[in-house]
Amino acid sequence: MLVTWKYRIRDTFIQRLDPRTRLIYMLCIIFAITLPDIWDYRIILPLFLISLTLYFLARIEWKDVKRAWLFIGVFVFFIVGLNGVLSGRGGPDSVTNIPSPVLFILPLKIPFTEIGWDIPLTIAKLWFSMVQITRMLTMAILAFPIPYTMDPNIYGTAFKRMGSSDKISFTMDLAFRFLPTLARDFSITMDAQRARGYEMDKLRGGIAARLRRLAPLIIPVVMQSTVTGEEVIDAMDLRAFGTTPRTWLKELHYQPRDYMMLAFGVSILIGCCVLKWGLGIGEFFVPDFFTILFVK
């Protein structure tokens, strides 16, 4: 097994942004939607379009992301969307409390019996489900391009420059460096165990037996890494790690575009808070045009 980072250098606006800008902007949007609990499509839809624009600006090739999109799609549409349509829960109480025309009754019953429920599918639930999917995607598609567009070697520096201590940032940096080494160790162990007749593709038995049979793969790698750790600690102690503040090889500098992006993110956050808490805009409601589609 090889660990290959999804990251590739692309000459795009997104990659020219400082990594701190991207992380802070993402947090601004997450907090803008969740802190004041925004459910109004007039706010969520523009935010979704902005997130979608940023996603396309990253210019990630479809072949790289189709598997991940499949995962997100199944999760968002089937689990979250279907749950919203059926139950109407997970959002404000108004979804199930406001009077809304019933589209049809879905009988969820054990066949040939009366055991189960009759679930009314209302226009409010349907609209809520669509808003919920859009709301979730608005946040998810900001996080989604990060592994593809942010240099793994810069995570440690980014966290340091965002105010983390040297030790925390160095842990982050070191973890990224160890990952390919440990992946290689795991591959070697796997090959060695195969040579001894270990059939990893044919793990048989119950849950306990299968888990226990993973031990010949996991134990050697974990134990070897604890030994390696002692050697790394000795090397770092000899270089007086942790006694004085560190300098970092990679430098990060905000550019005008970063300030613009940060100002934009903070404005959205403040704007959403003012709209909800100051003006009372942002609650869930079903727009008339949507109701008219079903009720004439």
Binding site: W5, K6, R67, A68, A143, F144, I146, P147, P152
Partner: peptide, 8 residues
């Protein structure tokens, strides 16, 4: 998550 390409 990053290695799988699932975001943060």
């Amino acid at each position: 998550d990053a290695a799988m390409g699932w975001g943060f």
